[in-house]
């Protein structure tokens, strides 16, 4: 929560509610809300109180909510998840820590295409299992070529990787310093946090998909239907801006596991990589491993010419 958005926005929040009433929208939207708010699970079975449905529908933009409103919103979400999945999910809102700017580097000479990162990501981050949403796409390309149009995006899992004449390039959100997706969003439902991670308020996104068109790394995914997330697959430790279960019709993408990394842990993909190809850390800390890599290795970034300043580097030994 940004400090500078408190008082002024608080007022805006009040006037917003007044204005909604003035427009006479209260009654008409109520019916819509009943349908919409029940989307994460099977609408008919989920029992969500009328107050919660209203609260959910009229919930303000994350950055415009007061501390109390955020607290209410988190509690409301937890109640909703309980009703939907019958699991006690904790929704946190830990802010970005001062003096931290996250960055990632991936060693392409070590990556063998095992795609353990892809699996770990989904297990940690509560993506829909059907249809399956994956944040990381690993490309298999001929050695000596970097033509992505010739890449194999769907090399099969039971094949033995690595194949001798291939190399592998994992791509996920590059957390641009100058993110084109943020610029494109008509309602500011997506923004860059002070620690450099671009997040999405899943409760504010209108699902227009402008951001998906703007992304040079094809990092964004859309919930074409209500996500289906089996109870036993749920990770109950979540963050509002990150891995809490999503809903129908909104966009999502990699958030560098901020529910973990803000607490000093490593992102799931880094932990899962069996070859140690992934280096994650604080770019502002001169003693961090990521800084060492950036200063001593041959590094490059994808599509640097677009000047989005990604905080995701590739390197080789």
């Amino acid at each position: 929560m940004n400090k500078d958005t408190t008082l002024k926005e608080k007022k805006a929040g009040v006037s917003r509610r007044k204005a909604l009433k003035a427009f006479g929208l209260g009654a008409t939207v109520a019916a819509g809300a009943a349908v919409a708010s029940a989307t994460p699970g099977k609408p008919s079975k989920v029992d969500i109180s009328f107050d919660d449905q209203m609260g959910n529908y009229f919930q303000d933009h994350y950055k415009k909510m007061t501390k109390e409103e955020i607290k209410e919103a988190l509690a409301r979400l937890e109640r909703r998840y309980k009703a939907t999945y019958d699991v006690d999910i904790k929704v946190d809102n830990m802010p970005a820590q001062p003096g931290v700017l996250f960055g990632y580097a991936l060693n392409i000479s070590k990556c063998k295409g095992y795609r353990e990162c892809v699996k770990a990501c989904t297990e940690t981050n509560n993506q829909s299992r059907d249809p399956e949403i994956q944040f990381i796409r690993v490309l298999e390309m001929d050695k000596g070529s970097m033509n992505m149009e010739e890449a194999n995006h769907y090399f099969s899992d039971d094949e033995t990787v690595p194949k001798p004449d291939k190399w592998y390039l994992p791509i996920q959100c590059h957390q641009c310093e100058n993110p084109p997706c943020v610029k494109a969003c008509p309602v500011e439902a997506t923004w860059k946090e002070p620690d450099g991670i671009t997040v999405i308020d899943y409760n504010w996104c209108i699902g227009c998909r402008m951001c998906m068109n703007a992304c040079p790394y094809w990092a964004r995914r859309f919930n074409w239907k209500a996500p289906s997330l089996p109870k036993e697959d749920i990770n109950p430790v979540t963050h509002y801006l990150a891995n809490r279960p999503r809903e129908k019709g909104v966009v999502e993408k990699c958030f560098f596991c901020l529910q973990k990394t803000r607490k000093g842990e490593m992102p799931a993909c880094q932990e899962a990589c069996p070859t140690g190809a992934r280096v994650f850390g604080n770019l502002l800390d001169p003693n961090s491993e990521i800084r060492y890599v950036l200063e001593h290795k041959n590094i490059f970034r994808l599509k640097e010419d677009l000047q989005t300043e990604p905080k995701f580097w590739y390197y080789s030994d």
Binding site: A36, I206, F222
Partner: peptide, 11 residues
Amino acid sequence: DMGRPDRLWHL
């Protein structure tokens, strides 16, 4: 075309 037409008011 919107994923969440119920949130049109956000615009």
